[in-house]
Amino acid sequence: MTESLFYFLASLTLLCALMVVIAKNPVHSVLFLIITFFTISGHYILLNAQFLAAVNIIVYAGAIMVLFLFVIMFLNISKESEHKVKTSTLSKFAGTIAGGLLFVVLIAALKDTGVTGYSPDTYNSQVGMVENLGQVLFTQYLLPFELASVLFLVAMVGAVMLGKKETGEQHF
């Protein structure tokens, strides 16, 4: 049951991720990306990590992708601008070669790695629950956690600075 569910979810994830790249309309791409995030959340639930699944949906599908959709809807108002973008043969070649090289590097990196198993006796199935995650984050990984929060604060201050009206700027 779980295994077939995993294969279904995995194939759906790959299909949607592929459609993000293939889709002609950028809004369709964004919608496929949202479905991809949902399927990834499904994987988290299969791994018994409910907190990560919920946060993944809230942060990525709920906030970031809304902003993506926002910007793309604004850009996409005039349909004519789409046809102006033409890819030259040279850039197509360059893209194919670069992608192929990346593929080779990935295969080289992954061909010798094995999947480390887990022992069912010592494995704690509740490891992905909120309480356990909070315990680990606030004891074992306290410093990285706090540093990440400082990073967010810096990003917020930067955004406020960029958005601030300068003196003498016209008010619309």
Partner: peptide, 25 residues
């Protein structure tokens, strides 16, 4: 009963905006 009930509601609420945005666009 999920032990992240509040986050579930919050996530679903944050998805509510897609219906409006897709329809409007």
């Amino acid at each position: 009963e999920v032990n992240i009930g509040m986050l579930y509601i919050f996530g679903v609420v944050s998805l509510g905006v897609y219906g409006l945005m897709i329809g409007g666009w």
